[in-house]
Design a protein around this nucleic acid. Structure first.
Lengths: 137, 137
DNA sequence: GGTTGACCTCAAGTTCACTTGAACTTGTAG
DNA sequence: CTACAAGTTCAAGTGAACTTGAGGTCAACC
């Protein structure tokens, strides 16, 4: 008996049971069956859930994630679309890295007014230019 | 006359005027004055707005961003907190990089079932373990 | 100096991602 | 066999981040 109870899944994944039911309803995950009324989950669902959390952190909506990975967690859409998502993500990452460096500099720089600091300005300039591309939030 | 009309700011930043008013109300940006009823913005607001968009993409809430940078766009909170934000962001970035690699691999890998592919599994394992740290969404 | 259209305010509505509550069912322990 | 803790459904509520609509104002052009 390897199947997991919803409470087990919640505990192991850190995601509340209510959210797990919501995900199932939205087609992001699937239970393998029921014991009475109670859902049973395959342990694989845990891996799948970390993929979902990850995708959310990347700025993808649950709907997008459902399109990208089915309720089975396997990449689903065509390779071109996956590659495009990867590229969008890559751009996001570069911008975030610049923001990180900017914050780190702001934390270290003795300059009072960071917007006067050329290093900070340069980093922020590098970080700019997001918004309005459908794949990357 | 260098001040920008809200429509100009909207056009240049790609952010709708309604959102700009909302940001002002929330203390994320400031207008330099009014011409009659109409807000006038300093061009600097554009830089500030890209910082906001960036912060959002990084998973920070508007409230957090307001705390991090005032309505003037200058880093505001103490250096320790900024450094902590930078560290949280850095962790996020690493996870996203793993997701990007996973997607890229999924797009390229000839394997039909990606969850059977060791490369994909390894990448997803590396990407896991987000959720429940207050600074990173 | 009147019209006009872009801006204003304020309240209410929308979407997303969940959470909460009420009422109900059921496997397991005693 | 009864009790009950832990699950279930379904509807409604929540908070964040905006958007939309109604009704009002006013700077600028003709």
């Amino acid at each position: 008996m390897k199947e997991l109870d919803i409470a087990e899944v919640a505990r192991l994944s850190g995601i509340p049971a209510s959210a797990l039911r919501y995900y199932e309803e939205k087609g992001l995950i699937a239970s393998v069956g029921r014991r009475g009324l109670r859902r049973l989950f395959d342990p694989d669902v845990l891996e799948h859930l970390s993929l979902i959390s990850l995708g959310q952190a990347a700025g993808f909506s649950l709907e997008e994630l459902a399109a990208m990975f089915g309720s089975d967690g396997r990449p689903r859409i065509d390779r071109g679309a996956l590659a495009a998502k990867a590229d969008a993500l890559d751009r996001t990452i570069r911008h975030l890295a610049a923001l990180r460096d900017g914050l780190r500099h702001a934390a270290a720089c003795p300059e009072a007014d960071h917007f006067a600091c050329p290093t900070f300005r340069r980093l922020m300039k590098a970080a700019a230019g997001r918004r309005k591309q459908k794949g990357g939030r």
